[in-house]
Design a binder for these strands. Structure first.
Lengths: 185, 185
DNA sequence: TGTACATCAGTGAACGCGCGTTCACTGATGTAC
DNA sequence: TGTACATCAGTGAACGCGCGTTCACTGATGTAC
């Protein structure tokens, strides 16, 4: 049946949003299109009215996750101590336990890199963050230091999500957060 | 056919070694048991003479990768400047392009963490590295600082492998390596 | 020592399953007259 | 304005494929007598 004018655009965005969440939470390879469409109350056959392949959806979902992150960071970097706010948010318990709503770098991008199909969108997501962090840094080599900060944030979040011991997971977040905030200036 | 006495033990180890390489290079989910056994000149049916399930192999392969890393690090930490040697090795071009022979933390462990089935072996691999790094550090809070160093190493390697631009990938390694070596003392 | 038998690592076909993708079809809506 | 037609988002069965796993079988070796 033909739906009202902007119905398709809405469905299109719903698919992308649900995919962006599942890809980050479960992994790209482990996310099936059939369960994804079913969760939206649709049948899987209709998927190809919106995307030419799963790969195209992966790319769109990574972009969408990047835009979510941009929006979230726009708020953080408007605060008084923008870098501290960003660090606190990145290494928060909420971010640790909510990969489906968080930064796509430790989840989607690392899986794409692993599979040998890195996307330019990964570079865009990372570069956006590097520039924002760099803007808050005083002194020399702000661009270099922003790279170290992002590496440390991504690594700490990834390790925290990977270890089995809840105590160690929390400790990684706490220690890294304090270190990054102290060595800020 | 029945094979000579230690034949089975040898095959067992060959399967683990090949799996440890493939799991790190291609990912656990993307590695099939059928191609794995075929690469060793065996048929897939025989797999279950050695392991009760793929999950058991995953655990054994993660352990084996940890032991490989232990052996490699034992040499590095016997050098004159052990921490520098470890940092240089971890952020080397060789490690960047050889995930199948490298640290399992940014590859296998992160995938296991993603799938919500973290293994105690991940904690063992990380703790072994934390203790070695900690042993080289002077001053206060050596244990905390070792956590930050490991987070930074893992994050930098992961990002370097994830981005599309070779220039950015190299820069992440270079900048992080210099930062960690300078802030050593 | 020589022979008969038991073992069991490895074989290869088959199992059900979910995957990404294709395709003929439906039917409410937008458009043309 | 009212009617006939074209559109096309979504349906649901089917495709081939590779997955992890099972299973009856093979046959060279180790063991028992």
């Amino acid at each position: 049946m033909r739906y009202s004018q902007d119905h398709k655009a809405q469905t299109h965005q719903r698919i992308i949003k649900e995919a962006a969440a599942r890809f980050r939470r479960d992994g790209i390879g482990a996310t099936g299109l059939q369960p994804l469409m079913k969760a939206l109350g649709l049948t899987h056959g209709g998927f190809y009215s919106h995307f030419s392949s799963k790969d195209e959806l992966v790319e769109k979902a990574l972009q969408a996750a990047g835009e979510e992150l941009d929006a979230h960071c726009a708020m953080l970097f408007a605060e008084e101590r923008p870098l501290d706010a960003f660090i606190d948010s990145y290494l928060s318990e909420w971010h640790q336990t909510s990969p489906h709503q968080g930064c796509p770098l430790p989840t989607m991008s690392s899986e794409l890199g692993l599979r040998g199909q890195p996307s330019p969108t990964t570079d865009a997501v990372l570069n956006a963050r590097l520039e924002q962090v760099q803007g808050t840094l005083e002194g020399e080599h702000a661009d270099d230091r922003s790279i170290v900060i992002m590496s440390t944030l991504v690594g700490a979040l990834l390790l925290s999500r990977s270890v089995e011991s809840p105590g160690l997971a929390q400790r990684i977040l706490d220690v890294t957060r304090e270190h990054l905030k102290q060595s800020r200036d």
